[in-house]
Design a protein around this nucleic acid. Structure first.
Lengths: 159, 159
DNA sequence: CTTCATGCAAAAGATTTGCAAGTTC
DNA sequence: GAACTTGCAAATCTTTTGCATGAAG
């Protein structure tokens, strides 16, 4: 139901985020975007940096790292937790389980609790013969306030 | 719908994981478990280590770090991505979006695609005035094969 | 022209590991 | 007893920053 984004659409999304932050569209960021589009499957931040460097054009690691959050904000890169190498946790014992709705512009976090998700998750897991123990479920986007801000002006402070 | 786990249940879960890996139930791990249960909200691996250290009993940082993956496997700690400080990504452009079903015992990853999740997510986001751009959704548990293995013997190799 | 970007190399952090001595099973 | 743990400190790794120079708007 969700169509594959072509190069043009991807560039548009990226530039939109840049504009929103008053940042510039440079050759380096263009290169990084291209590599990101070309990488299949899962990869680490460092992997990506490596690919970009090897890809010829001398784009430094620092520049790649600096682009990461922007790419995520543009929805071109999707953060993952696979493998458990995370830095951040939440006590899974206190109170009922909840997921998170995070504003990528201002950082606000809304905790949500949706019974339907839980049920659906169990169903899917069962269908694959899995016995669930936990999960990570976070939704990223912009909250009402930040949407208004970015519509009004393109030089809105990042946070 | 999901009840708060009491100390006993938590210990049971933890010891179960330890047994499954042929590991031991030590005073240090007991301390760590206690602190984990006491910490509310979100925290980093380092935060936890700090708390444990300050909590008196001289449990070293290294020991805490070593216990982390076990706690997650036991479902007592829930990994999160909040804040975007992740090390791992996935190209959000190639093909339709999918979530992950991960076996914490053997590491197998099954990619799942459930339309209902997407719809529900959009609904929840809308209800809070958010415009979604991406999300992380990973389910952790044990696959059919690993379930059988751990039932048969407690000394099954971790992976 | 003013503001932002980049590379470099250094700095800062976070996590992991080797080892000798002490514990659990 | 054998196998697994721990603390410590050193070793690794990853990610971030300061600065001077070079582009983009």
């Amino acid at each position: 139901m969700r169509q594959r984004l072509n190069a043009e659409a991807a560039e548009l999304k990226f530039r939109e985020v840049l504009a929103r932050h008053g940042l510039k569209w440079t050759a380096e960021r263009r290169t990084i975007l291209a590599i990101v589009r070309s990488l299949p499957g899962h990869f680490t931040a460092d992997d990506l940096a490596g690919h970009v460097q090897r890809a010829g054009a001398g784009v430094s690691r620092a520049t790649v790292y600096r682009a990461l959050p922007l790419l995520v904000e543009a929805g071109l890169l999707q953060p993952m937790v696979l493998g458990g190498e995370v830095r951040r946790f939440e006590n899974a014992l206190s109170g009922p389980h909840h997921d998170h709705l995070v504003c990528t512009a201002c950082g606000r976090v809304v905790e949500i609790e949706v019974e339907a998700f839980e049920i659906l998750q169990r169903e899917v897991a069962a269908r694959h013969g899995f016995r669930l123990s936990s999960h990570v479920h976070e939704l990223y986007g912009t909250c009402a306030g930040c949407q208004r801000t970015s519509e009004r002006s393109a030089d809105a402070p990042a946070r």
